[in-house]
Amino acid sequence: MAEKPRFRWHIVVFLAPAVLVYTAVMIYPLFNTLRLSLFTEVDQSRVYVGLQNFRTLFGDAVWSTQFWNALGNNFWFFIIHMLVQNPIGIALAAILSHPKLRFAAFYRSAIFIPTILSFVIVGFAWKLILSPIWGIAPGMLDAVGLKSLYAPWLGKEEYALTTLSLVSVWQFVGIPMMLIYAALLSIPDEILEAAEVEGITGLSAFWKIKLPLILPSIGIISILTFVANFNAFDLIYAAQGALAGPDFSTDILGTFMYRTFFGFQLQLGDPHMGSTIASAMFAIILVGVCLYLFGIQSRMRRYQF
């Protein structure tokens, strides 16, 4: 065994393809985008300008109004998901996880169907259903005597963003439902039986026993929701177009970045300002993920069964 250990080439061969593609197509462009945000174009050549683009984004009145508008809308989008999507998902999972419930597999599969549809389908389908021209929504409200509540929600500035958030909630409720369902199934029966002996059943068993045990999963869902929401684009683009109408009331960071990068109508596309917005998005997502990892996850007690 005096022979020196040979270099194990096979490890390199196994790792190389994934690491190369990942580095070249994901990590390198990510940092390159951050770098590009420090440049601008003057006379068709790239000039280093330091933090000038960020100063424009936050300091220039036209840019900063758009940015804060998009960021504010994005927070509202996220809040609706946290307040509506995740509680509904948890409630559905709690009902589904009842051991003696019949047809559970059917309900589970059916409720998950919207999640597999593309944003294009979801955006247009809801646009048609809510449209005053087709009249499905007003007709149905009329049938229950609430016709006066109807408004062309997607066309009104004050309702459009909330309506789209709820459409997105409709689409993605399946994900928290499935993840919480999985977490609830993994709670051992002995714990629930012990609680039952103590007289804790039904709803109080859910609040006192199950909910504390699935808190880590709720944390994961929250951070997944956060990353997905601050990276959203498709639904708004499919339903309202790149201008995120009416009057930018549904503009979020994804559509703002797309418009800036590619240009629209009279404004020319600007890759450097696009990178600047992307960098801001990166910072926001990074802050959120770090808050979760160091602030929430590390403090949460994990129960080992």
Partner: peptide
């Protein structure tokens, strides 16, 4: 998300 790097 990989979308952040779209420009590059």
């Amino acid at each position: 998300p990989i979308r952040i790097g779209t420009v590059a």
